[in-house]
C-alpha cells in the first residue's frame, strides 16, 4: 500500500515540479547572463497557453505525427515511476532496470525522429538525422557509465543500486567519479543542452531537437515540451540515484519520504546551479566536434570501468 502511495506521489512530483525546475534553470541562466528573468513559473504559463490553443497540422501529417507527443509523454511518466526519487520501495521498480530505462528514452527519441521526417521538410529531416547521430554515440557511453555502477553494485535494478550506494555511505571510488563525469556529459547530450544543442535556439542550422519538433503546435507541442522538461528532471533524479542517493527512504522506512522529498528539492536546486554554470561557461560546439565531446564521455566511462577492475 505504502509503495503505491509513494509511486503516485513520485509521478505527481515529476509531472508537477518538472516545469518549475526548468523555470529555475532558465531563471538562473538569466541572472548569470545579466538578463531579467520571467520568473520560475513561466513554463507553467507557457504550457497553459499551448494547451488552450488550436492545432495547426500540415496537410500531409500522418498518424505518427499525432501519436508521438502522447507516446513521449507516456514513456517519460512511466520512467518517473521507475527511477527512485523518494523511496526505493517502488512497486514499479521491478518493471524496468536501468537498461530498460535507457530503452524507454530511446523509444521516445525514435518516434520523435520519425515525426521530424513525417512532414517532409528539410529542417525536420536534418534534426532527425543529427539527433540519431548524437544518440548513437551517446548511448554506448551512457550504458558504459551505468555498467560501471551496476558492476559495483552487482545489479542493474535502480532501487537496488540506490540502496547499495546509500548503505555503503560516502566511499570515494575513482570508478564512480569517472562514471559520474561521463554521466554528466551524456546527460547534457541527451537533453539537448549546451554544448551539444541549444534549447533556446531558433537559428535553423544549429538546431537539433528543436528542428525535429518545428511543425508541432497546440497541445501536441505542449506535451512534447512537458515531456522534455520531465526528461531533464528525470536525468537529475537518475544521477542522484546512481551516484548520490542521500536522503532517500529505504524499503522499511515510509517515514523517510518527507525527508527524501526535501533532499530531492535540495539536489534539484544545486543541480540547477551546476547545469547553469556549465551552460553559461561553454559555447555550443560545431556538430562534428560533438564526436570529441561524446568520445570524451565514452573515455571517461571506460576509465571508470577500468579503474573499477584495476584499482578497486
Amino acid at each position: 500500500m505504502n509503495g503505491i502511495i509513494v509511486e503516485t506521489l513520485q509521478i505527481a512530483i515529476l509531472i508537477g515540479i518538472a516545469p518549475a525546475f526548468t523555470g529555475w534553470v532558465r531563471m538562473l541562466k538569466c541572472w548569470m547572463q545579466g538578463r531579467t528573468s520571467a520568473g520560475m513559473f513561466q513554463p507553467y504559463r507557457d504550457l497553459a497557453k499551448l494547451f488552450s490553443k488550436d492545432i495547426v497540422l500540415a496537410h500531409n501529417a500522418s498518424w505518427i505525427f499525432r501519436f508521438t507527443p502522447y507516446l513521449c509523454f507516456g514513456t517519460v511518466v512511466l520512467a518517473g515511476g521507475i527511477v527512485p526519487m523518494l523511496s526505493t520501495d517502488l512497486p514499479l521498480a521491478l518493471t524496468a532496470d536501468v537498461i530498460v530505462l535507457v530503452g524507454l528514452f530511446a523509444i521516445a527519441r525514435f518516434f520523435t525522429a520519425l515525426s521530424g521526417m513525417d512532414i517532409g521538410t528539410a529542417f525536420g529531416g536534418m534534426g532527425s538525422s543529427r539527433e540519431m547521430m548524437v544518440a548513437s554515440l551517446a548511448e554506448p557511453a551512457m550504458l558504459m557509465a551505468i555498467f560501471t555502477v551496476s558492476l559495483l553494485c552487482k545489479s542493474t535494478s535502480l532501487s537496488r543500486i540506490a540502496e547499495v550506494i546509500y548503505t555503503a555511505g560516502f566511499v570515494a571510488k575513482p570508478s564512480l567519479a569517472f562514471a559520474f563525469i561521463a554521466f554528466i556529459l551524456i546527460a547534457l547530450a541527451e537533453n539537448g543542452r549546451i554544448p551539444v544543442d541549444n534549447p533556446a535556439t531558433h537559428l535553423e542550422l544549429t538546431m537539433i531537437h528543436e528542428a525535429m519538433i518545428l511543425e508541432y503546435s497546440g497541445r501536441h507541442l505542449a506535451l512534447i515540451e512537458w515531456a522534455g522538461m520531465m526528461k531533464l528532471f528525470l536525468f537529475i533524479a537518475l544521477s542522484s540515484t546512481l551516484f548520490y542517493p542521500f536522503g532517500i527512504a529505504g524499503t522499511d522506512n515510509p517515514a523517510g519520504v518527507p525527508v527524501a522529498a526535501v533532499a530531492l528539492i535540495l539536489k534539484l536546486f544545486i543541480s540547477g546551479v551546476v547545469l547553469v554554470v556549465i551552460e553559461t561557461g561553454l559555447a555550443k560546439m560545431r556538430l562534428f566536434r560533438l564526436t570529441e565531446f561524446l568520445g570524451a564521455a565514452f573515455l571517461m566511462a571506460t576509465l571508470g570501468m577500468l579503474s573499477f577492475f584495476i584499482l578497486e
Binding site: P174, A177, L311, E312
Partner: peptide
C-alpha cells in the same frame, strides 16, 4: 589506499 587509488586514476586521466 583510497586516496592512492584516486590519485592513480587522476594520473591515468591526465595521461589520456
Amino acid at each position: 589506499s583510497q586516496i592512492n587509488g584516486f590519485l592513480a586514476a587522476f594520473v591515468l586521466l591526465t595521461a589520456f
